[in-house]
Design a protein around this nucleic acid. Sequence first.
DNA 1: TTGTACGCGTTATCAC
DNA 2: GTGATAACGCGTACAA
Lengths: 353, 353
Amino acid sequence: MTSPETPRRATIADVAREAGVATSTASVVFSGKANVAPATRERVLAAAAELGYAGPDPRAASLRRGRSGIVAVVLEGHLRAAFLDPVTTAMMDGLTDGLAELSAGILLMRDEPGDDGSPLASAPVDAVVLIGCSGRTRASLDVVRGRGLPVVVIEGDAGDGIPRITLDNQAAAADVARHLRELGHRDLALVTLPLDQDRVRGTVTAERIATATVDVTVDRLAGMREIFPDAPAISASGSLIDEGLLVGRMLLEDPASRPTAIFAQSDLLAVGVIRAAEELGLRVPEDLSVAGFDGIDADGLGDLVLTTSVQPAVEKGRAAGEQVARMLRGEPGVSLHLTCRFRAGTTTAAPRR
Amino acid sequence: MTSPETPRRATIADVAREAGVATSTASVVFSGKANVAPATRERVLAAAAELGYAGPDPRAASLRRGRSGIVAVVLEGHLRAAFLDPVTTAMMDGLTDGLAELSAGILLMRDEPGDDGSPLASAPVDAVVLIGCSGRTRASLDVVRGRGLPVVVIEGDAGDGIPRITLDNQAAAADVARHLRELGHRDLALVTLPLDQDRVRGTVTAERIATATVDVTVDRLAGMREIFPDAPAISASGSLIDEGLLVGRMLLEDPASRPTAIFAQSDLLAVGVIRAAEELGLRVPEDLSVAGFDGIDADGLGDLVLTTSVQPAVEKGRAAGEQVARMLRGEPGVSLHLTCRFRAGTTTAAPRR
DNA sequence: TTGTACGCGTTATCAC
DNA sequence: GTGATAACGCGTACAA
């Protein structure tokens, strides 16, 4: 222990000694939490420069403070897939806003428990935001809660008294469907998001709905069916333009059974459907009306404006961030229910016949 | 101090006492770093359950170990913009791969130094990956380096001996330009990525190039100009399909000055240009050749295959991750220069006339 | 296999 | 305005 092995990195104590002050004084110089005589301050800073001291070690500081300044964001599935989704990125954007007052960093994590237990359990985080929480997360979540950390869930349910940020998916979907009905459409087809983890592309049956696990999909479907109880539906395997294209082809290839309008559960799917229509020589909205959901500004639509329900994606993130901030302040977190706003675009019109 | 104030959270010492073992034994039970008699182990676990102990505090553990298991990724600009770019997401994907052996979390950070100094300086991270590093980052970077943490830069220059992952942007762009020249094109127009933080859309002048700050843009432009020294260029305000559409219109609207080929600095821009051509009734590649850069599998091209230079985006991330892992192991980090591969597609052909 | 003791680098508290 | 001191909660040589 007394052997001079590696030339150890300077600590704040070394700096204090070099400057001829107490460690507590040096600490205050760096944290700025109290007034220090300018002369003393200079001495400390000079000593730090001389010893190559780069400021307080964040690890030690976070142990002492009980705060690391990091908030974990748990996404389901591959990170890449999550960031491929514009709604998720918008939400992350809002989250950084809501977290701004904490000036906290965002630690990205996946839902899956890794080889050596969930990383969630061993990461020095101050709070956790779950996005679309699936069952698997529960276990690792217990550890986090057991530690007394704030947890907020966006569009999911983590049970107990965990604050949730939710959306009026069903009502908003009904609004869009109503718009189509009022335009005069009677033959509507639906394109849904995945129903469960399996993400099977195919016709949506009553059985499949009964065993569905993705709330968003089920709720939006219910809203659509409020207005069009018998509309056929096909589930996509993800919220992607290419999926919309594939499902769009399935729905449109047979001219005999072709619907006059297609309502997709996401804007990306809707863009794909529009592309499928173009492929088949159908014009939108003259020959086919297409509506989406989300209100993202989809890249690649050109001059068309998608009829959709604009969800407050950024707000969702911001709200979650604000709740985290509140809970970290010791105040109780509350659940919030946000609403979507219908937007009539240029992709829907009255049917031809 | 002896007063029983708040019912303090249980620590590993409490668990050990409750189980009638030494703290070290309890510690080992949780870390699994050594063998413990099954009976003892059970007693410890039972005690932990009883006291509501949720496992070792990550903050304390990281101080003790000197590792937090977190790697910071610094992106320039808004997080949202970063994740809108397919190249960035692909890179992040590779990064998680390269970092896999560390099973480290990824802490997202922005380039901008906040109000209270850069968050980079106060985050408990083990290493830092910079993506497209601008000058502003330098200051906070010094703190990190002063602390002796590994730093790796992807497509940027952080000075000194910091390992860099770079791309042969200029040579690769020249390859694409050469292909167009060999096809017989003489009238080429360029669409560039943003030149600087201002992201102004407009004609690229010598002055603008001189004050440009985005290396990628400048390098690719230089490569293009090696072959077509006088080709006119317009800068886009971002790598987006709709931006390509706008700039494409600017370049194509006047039939008199219409080029026979357009080379865009990103595939997304190229897709937009193709869409602009379609709008004007021009066929690709018969009436207009279009080439891009990146080699992402762009959505919405139909049966066309874009002529482009395929950059190893995932590899860039993976390489950075691997260097970080190496440096954390104590080995020296090395700079890597990756190369793009030219891919001839169906969007380029000999000019008509 | 289990227990003891020390140090990781800070910062909050309180007295001066 | 400055200084001494005690935690913060854990991991790990080392001895038993």
